[in-house]
Structures are given as structure tokens and as C-alpha cells.
Amino acid sequence: MYGSNTGHTRRGRRAAARAGAVGVLLLLAVSGCSSSDEAPKKESAPASRQPAQQQPKARSPFWVNPDGTAAKEAARLRRSGKEGDAELLQKIASQPVAEWVGIDDPEGQTRGFTEAAVKADRDALLVLYNIPHRDCGQYSQGGASDGDAYRAWLDRAVRGIGDRPATVILEPDALPHMEDGCTPQEHHEERFALLKEAVGKLKALPRTKVYLDAGNPSWVTPVDRMAEPLRRAGIERADGFALNVSNFQTTEDSKDYGHRLSRLVGGKHFVIDTSRNGNGPLSGGDHEKAWCNPSGRALGEPPTTRTGDRQVDAYLWVKRPGESDGACKGGPDAGQWWETYALELARNSR
């Protein structure tokens, strides 16, 4: 893809999401009441698995999944005596990261994640990423077969969320890919309609916040080019827009872009993906090298709602650190766990 790679193939994300949701449902079945400082966990979890402690709610109200990939991999490394590497992965495992809702059983997934979050007195952070003609046939290609299939999938995801609190990042890249010409013109009208419907259905839920993806500061420029796509996709009803999903642009550059875009869309608030922007973007080289598993990157600021900026609702880890952007630089398929890259991100972070 061009400006930002979400790093989730249809095949890789389907398996990961199904496994994650099943794990969550099992956790709900076997765990008793938990305090607000600890997420539900399997009673039979191995001793080498560190319990997932939730971050202080006032700083970060989002749920830390005790059964996430980073937590599992850290436990595996600990069992094999690699304590140093395990501690590095714990930097990822200890933070709330978004759950990407897969193709299979969206209702079960969203219900499992939101119920587990409520049990820990936290909010679920979800990504809905199934728009038809997704990613222009590139690394993260796939999505629903057509508009009706998407509507049916969305309705199931909405039912699963129900009245539980959730923050939803809606369809990364869907709008920027229309504006940059990657998505063919014949798909534009349907996509705008689907996104607007999705915003409406999600905002009809009592405790759901919705942020439409708006790319990143290096992608669609000048910034005014993103205003009309957001308006056509229903930004007036959404809580705001999301920036830097799966990319590496600095928080300051994202804030500057976001403030300018906000003024064009009625003062809407925004969130920033800080999962891998600790060292900013890779400079020089060709475009793909800058977004597909670039070397030397670092974890960014941990997720928080204390941004010090009234327009910025949160810094979030939307991209799951340690998952590949695509089959480049020796990495696995998009969305697959890549331990080498995860360790580098953690090692380079402050």
C-alpha cells in the first residue's frame, strides 16, 4: 500500500483474530471476578506467564489482553530461559493494543473482547477492517466480497459490541486510498456509503466511540484533500478521525496535521497511533522501505488519554507491535508475528 500499511492479511488476521477471541471467551468462562487492576486470566496459566496488569485507568482506560500474542511469546521465552528477551516483549505485552476484528464470527469476537474488557473494568479498543476492495490488492488485500456482505458482517460486529464500552478505529486506509487514486473510481460511491452507514450503526450504540481513519501526515497532502472524503464518510456523526495507523510519523507531525484537518471538519477531535513512532519515520530510500518493516524503528509513547492536547483524545497502539507489515525485508506475511522485529522495536524504545 502507499501511505500506511495496516499489516493484516485476510489469511493471517483471520487466524489470529479467531484464536484471540476464542482465548478471550475461554478466559471469561474459567475466571472469577477480577479487580479493576487485573484482567481475567486462565487459572491454569503456566507460572512463567506474568499476569496482565491493567494500566491505571485514569491514564489509559483501554484493556490489556492477557492472552495477546506478545504475552504468549514473552512467556515462551521465559520458559526457555531467555529472560532478557522476555522482558523486552513485556514492554509490548503490558500495554493495551487494538484487537483487529476478523472475517470469521465478528459477533463472537467483538462480544468476547468487550466482555473481557468490562470484566477488567476497562474499554475495548477495536479495529474494523473489512471494506470491499481493501488495500487495492496489495499486502493486506481482501475484505468483504461486496457491499451487502460488508453490511452483514458489520451488523454482526455491532451486535457483539452491544451496550459495552468500545473505541472503534474504522477501516484503516479506506479513505486515503480513494484520495490517492489507488482504489478505482468505480468503487468510491459504494465505499463512502458503506462508511457512512458504519458510522451511523456504531454511533447508535450507547457506549461506542468511532474514529474514521484519515491516513498520516506524509500521505494525502495538502491536508485539505482529506476534508471532503471525511465529510462524505460521515465525520459529522463520528467522534473524530484517526492518524498514523500502522505508520511511523512522529506524534508532533501528526498533531500538526490533525489540528489543521480538524479545523476543516468542524473541530473534530482525533487519535494518533503511537505504536511504532518512537524514532519517527525512516528517512531516505524508496517509498516501500519507509513503511514496510523499516529498520531502526522503536515503540512510541504508551497508550494514554492524557495527551495534554484537548483536540487529541488519545495516543493508541492501533498497529500491534511485532506483527509484520508484509513479506518484505525477510519478514513474514502481513499480520504475522515477527519476533526479530518485535524485539528490535522494544530494544530501541526508551
Rank of each mutant, 00 (worst) to 15 (best):
H8Q: 12
A15W: 09
V24F: 02
L27C: 04
A29V: 03
V30S: 09
S36C: 15
E38T: 15
S48E: 15
Q53H: 09
Q53D: 09
Q54G: 07
Q54L: 09
V64P: 00
V64R: 02
N65A: 14
D67V: 15
A70W: 12
A71H: 11
K72W: 11
K72A: 14
E73H: 12
L77F: 06
V97L: 04
W100D: 02
V101I: 15
D104F: 14
D104M: 04
D104A: 10
D105M: 04
E107L: 00
A116G: 13
A117Q: 02
D123T: 15
L126K: 01
R134D: 09
Q138F: 13
S140Y: 05
Q141P: 00
G147K: 10
A152D: 12
A152K: 15
W153L: 10
D155T: 14
V158E: 00
G160H: 00
G160V: 00
P165C: 09
T167D: 03
T167L: 14
T167S: 05
I169S: 02
P172C: 12
L175P: 06
L175R: 06
E179M: 13
D180A: 08
P184A: 11
H188G: 06
E189Q: 14
R191W: 02
A193C: 04
A193H: 08
E197Q: 08
V199Y: 08
V199I: 10
G200R: 12
L202K: 01
A204M: 07
A204E: 11
K209T: 09
K209R: 15
V210M: 14
Y211L: 10
T221W: 11
V223Y: 13
P229R: 13
G234H: 10
D239A: 03
F241P: 00
N244T: 08
T251K: 06
D253S: 14
K255D: 00
Y257E: 01
H259W: 13
R260L: 03
K268C: 07
T274M: 09
S275W: 05
P281W: 15
P281I: 13
G284E: 12
H287R: 11
A290Y: 02
N293A: 07
G296M: 12
R306E: 11
R306V: 09
D313S: 14
D313W: 12
Y315T: 08
W317F: 10
W317H: 02
R320C: 01
D325Y: 03
D333K: 10
W338L: 06
E339Y: 05
T340C: 04
T340Q: 09
L345W: 08
A346Q: 13
N348F: 12
